[in-house]
Write a protein that binds this DNA or RNA. Structure first.
Lengths: 347, 347
DNA sequence: TTGTATGCGTTATCAT
DNA sequence: ATGATAACGCATACAA
């Protein structure tokens, strides 16, 4: 256990060899100006001395970090980690590093993370805003300064933003109509905070499907929450007091599964008594009994798309004028939680 | 959409106010040397100009980044994200930033990430090595240079390392003995690569439990793989050709669940025909039918412990001489996948 | 309490 | 093809 050694610098290499430090720098950057044999000598010596470039100095000098930041609500969520995988793949191809951060659904952390990323002069940021984020000032400031900031999954309404999202309206419309086709007449909707455009869109899709099928809207059937596990229990309890309810469209899987568990324990059968459709296609949903019909979102694709747009903005190859929206297509995954064989289905 | 503006520096503030830039620097760092009213003026102006400290310059100058790196195999894994939560909490208290990275279980990425972290001069690194990592050279070099590098979950055998782990031997012993008590006589073990000490320990625990209970060891019952989903299917297929098998101890939940699914589809009942114990307590395991008996690891606690030790090493308050191991206690979570009511249980 | 001068390690712009 | 020098933005030792 040696004591912490001082790191070798290009000056150490230059002194050891008699070359000037700028020659060393150029050689280490594989500049075409430097003779091959010189490069070889310098590279060897640098290995010998255990040289490792100080990125801080380099970034400070060049004013480029070749690094982007990503802020997601929670890295553990399947959808988030898919998006991250897509981003990392794209970034790798472009030679960029990625700093992953989680806001844990709080604005406070979101602000702090954004500040830290910018203090570290990342070249751009991709963000899925937190559930608490209703005021966009902290984002708008940076956006107005011309900083490459791009939103995915949860769109942001401020001017001049690029949003990469899935078609939440259509997905929810399809999900709800699927329940209706399965014979459901009294469909509850587990909604997230309607302060988020995302959840407003899902709610609108639900309503549109009911309207189109001449099913009266009932405000008592909209349960708004943060869609945590406990909210599923609360939702299930409310449902038990509404015996006519025969279907649930939940804006995420976690809450749907939690509700199904509670209902099963309390003598309700899924899908026979109540059918369920979730959202997100968490791995858990395929494995729960009954497996959950849900919406699959192309997370990996979204990550690739969002980062590729961000890189265009960073490189200046994309002119950003006014709002831009890229919409990806979600997919309804039909499973057992809606496998009723009811009369209406064959009509 | 304004064009990218140049960021304000302490010099801009100093010029605007007539103070020297070092006064500005001190004021922004809330130095006690600076008069309160001066501080106030400088702070106001800095806000007006939208000043934001350039961390790169600051870090370069001070040779301290107040940042640690964490490398985990996959951020999506429940256990990993629990550890990260613990690390982030501890780091927040100490005023450190955390850079999260995933090796995706490959040495290549692991090396690259470690290099990037060190090029960015993080103050220390916490790592759970990848499954492929059998050669520790890339880690040993840094360790030998006195760099604060600390291992968690998957211990590292190189000299002078601190490892924060759970008692994998005991957990596996308990898991296996639990199966034995439930009447299992022919117990298969799904093992990870035995090149990892972690999986060797789990395998040893399994063997020790069999030996203690006078159950002959059978090498055909050890299925070694990378414990992916597909390995569960392969394992299940092998089991179908071994009709005497009545129990499985799997070194992770994913593989166990995948195997249970396959067996169920092929007419085997769990736990009646074959009982299962997994490892990791993934959320999915509570939700699968039958729910999976498994080992819960205190991830959050491990994260707090590991980071707290790392900070001691960074601060120099901990003398690191020779190997150190911190062992946390896992917990057997008994669920339906081992709920046999067999004769032997009541003996 | 504030100012002056210097350097962290790198790269870019000159010059040779 | 290589060298000399300045500058990126900040923090600190020293001076006043």
């Amino acid at each position: 256990m040696t004591r912490k050694k001082k790191k070798a610098t290009i000056h150490d290499i230059s002194k050891a060899l008699g070359f000037n430090s700028s020659t060393v720098s150029r050689a280490l950057n594989d500049s075409p100006l430097i003779a091959d044999k010189t490069k070889k000598i310098i590279l060897e010596k640098s290995k010998e001395l255990g040289y490792q470039r100080n990125s801080l100095a380099s970034k400070l000098r060049t004013n480029k970090t070749k690094t982007i930041g990503v802020i997601v609500p929670r890295i553990a969520r399947h959808f988030c980690s898919s998006v991250i995988a897509g981003i990392e793949e794209m970034a790798f191809d472009k030679g960029y590093d990625v700093i992953i951060c989680q806001s844990l659904e709080t604005v406070k952390r979101e602000k702090k993370l954004l500040d830290t990323l910018l203090a570290n002069r990342v070249d751009g940021v991709l963000i899925a805003i937190s559930m608490e984020t209703t005021n966009f000032d902290h984002l708008e400031n940076y956006k107005n300064e011309g900083f490459p900031l791009l939103f995915f999954d949860r769109p942001c309404d401020i001017e001049g933003c690029t949003n990469v999202v899935i078609d939440d309206f259509k997905a929810s419309f399809d999900a709800t109509e699927h329940l209706i086709r399965k014979g459901c007449k009294n469909i509850v909707h587990f909604s997230g905070p309607k302060t988020l455009a995302l959840y407003r869109n899902r709610w609108r899709g639900y309503r549109a499907a009911l309207e189109k099928n001449n099913i009266p809207l009932n405000d008592n059937y909209i349960f708004e929450s943060k869609l945590m596990e406990k909210d599923g229990v609360i939702g299930a309890q409310k449902i038990l007091s509404l015996p006519e309810v025969d279907g649930v469209f939940s804006a995420n899987d976690t809450t749907a599964i939690s509700a199904m568990q509670y209902l099963k324990k309390n003598g309700k059968n899924v899908p026979e008594d109540i059918a369920f459709v979730g959202f997100n296609n968490e791995p858990m949903s395929a494995v729960f009994a009954p497996s959950l019909t849900t919406i699959h979102q192309p997370g990996f694709e979204m990550g690739r798309m969002a980062s590729s747009l961000l890189f265009e903005e960073i490189d200046g190859t994309r002119r950003v004028k006014g709002d831009q929206v890229k919409v990806l297509n979600p997919e309804l995954i039909i499973r057992d939680s809606t496998s009723k064989h009811m009369l209406s289905e064959s009509i």
